[in-house]
Amino acid sequence: MRFPHIFIRFTVPLCALFIATSAPAQVIEGTASGVGDRVWEILLLHDDDSDGIITRAEFDRDSRAFSGYDLNQDGRLNRAEIVRWASSRSRARPGRGAAGSPPAGSQRGGAARNRGQGPTRMISALGDLDADGIVTEGEWNRALDGMSAEGVIPVDTLRTLLAEKGMGRMTPFIISRWDPDGAGFIDRWSLGELFRRVDADGDGRIEVPPTEGLARPASPRDGADRSRGEARLFRGGAAPVVGDRAPDFTLSRSDDPQVQVQLSSFTGKKPVALIFGSYT
């Protein structure tokens, strides 16, 4: 008996809605400041009040992307920040450009300073096991060992740990950098390699930067409520398998958002087929 075809990925060619104004995904060759300038010009299209600053509200798009740009997490982007972002992004691509050292002038300070505010803060928050203000490579590897299983670190684990330090807002940035396809896991090796990239002077030690303005005390939104709710459903990042109790949820219908549907309401009545997907 034939049955109607279920579309793969729901994709159908359509005429364009509008062109994206976010930064290009691939890195353009050239000096760090050149790339940053070009990205900045694209981002300036979001600058509604033409004040040379892009706020989160003006950006109006994926907050994950904004958090990725917003290195100091102050909710505003300016040209200097974008130039720094571009230079740290180009260094993050292995094998591209010079052997690791950025062009002079694109860093905040001298060679002894750490590069990349986001990664530095993450390593500082999670890696200073003996609380002496320094994260050694050995400490960082031990910290990663504590988080990982079988070579990967669940994103959920990172999120909880960062939330405990009041840095839950960094999580979207981390996810966009290291888990862009949302698998829920980050490769442990790449986080280990991150240490070398952050450690600008290569002495195997990273200084924990002063925390004023960077981290804020944990608030209820950061830690407890989210991680409790997620722990109920998320179970450390693995997809449910046959025989598991199906994670319950309540979602609203697209055709009538007032109507809420709860998965467990069908238990004992009918099987439920779930088709996960999106339009693109």
Binding site: D181, A183, E230, L233, L251, S252, R253, L274, G277, S278
Partner: peptide, 30 residues
């Protein structure tokens, strides 16, 4: 169509990205 919240909670619980099929039995288990 049921719309997942912006926290992608159901997506992450079921690892449904980019697309995936599940059947939940009458007993509430997968």
């Amino acid at each position: 169509a049921l719309v997942d919240g912006m926290d992608d909670l159901v997506n992450r619980s079921y690892q449904g990205h980019p697309d995936r099929l599940y059947l939940v039995g009458v007993d509430g288990r997968i």
